[in-house]
C-alpha cells in the first residue's frame, strides 16, 4: 500500500486557517515531528543495547563533546544549516522566470 493510494481525489481536506497553505505546511511539520520522534526512540534504543553489550558506558554519549569532536562535525553542521536555511533567501538556483 502506498500512502498516495489513500488520497480521495474528489474530497478536498478540511481547512482551519485563513490561508490553506498554513493547513498544509503544518501537516508537513507534524509529519516531520513524527519522524524526529521515531528517530529519537531508535537512537535511545540503540544506546541501551550498546550499554548492555558494554560497548559504551551508561550515559557515555551524554557528556559534552570535546573541541576536537565538535570541530570534526563543523562542516556537516554548516552544510545542514545551509540546506535548511537557503530557501529563506528567496533566490533562484537555476535561472528562469521570476
Amino acid at each position: 500500500m502506498q500512502l498516495s493510494d489513500t488520497l480521495l481525489e474528489d474530497r478536498p481536506e478540511q481547512t482551519f486557517f485563513e490561508d490553506p497553505a498554513l493547513d498544509r505546511a503544518f501537516g508537513v511539520v507534524m509529519a516531520l515531528a513524527t519522524e524526529v520522534y521515531v528517530l529519537r526512540d531508535r537512537a535511545r534504543a540503540l544506546e541501551r543495547k550498546l550499554e548492555a553489550a558494554g560497548v559504551i558506558e551508561p550515559g557515555g554519549l551524554d557528556a559534552e563533546p570535546g573541541d576536537e569532536e565538535r570541530a570534526a562535525d563543523a562542516g556537516d553542521r554548516e552544510a545542514f544549516v545551509e540546506g535548511l536555511m537557503i530557501s529563506l533567501l528567496g533566490k533562484q538556483q537555476a535561472k528562469g522566470a521570476s
Partner: peptide
C-alpha cells in the same frame, strides 16, 4: 484554529499517516 487542526489531523496521521 490549531485546536481544530490538531483534532482533525492527529486522527488522520493515526489512521492514514506513514506510521
Amino acid at each position: 484554529r490549531y485546536f481544530s487542526w490538531l483534532e482533525r489531523h492527529l486522527q488522520r496521521f493515526k489512521y492514514a499517516g506513514r506510521y
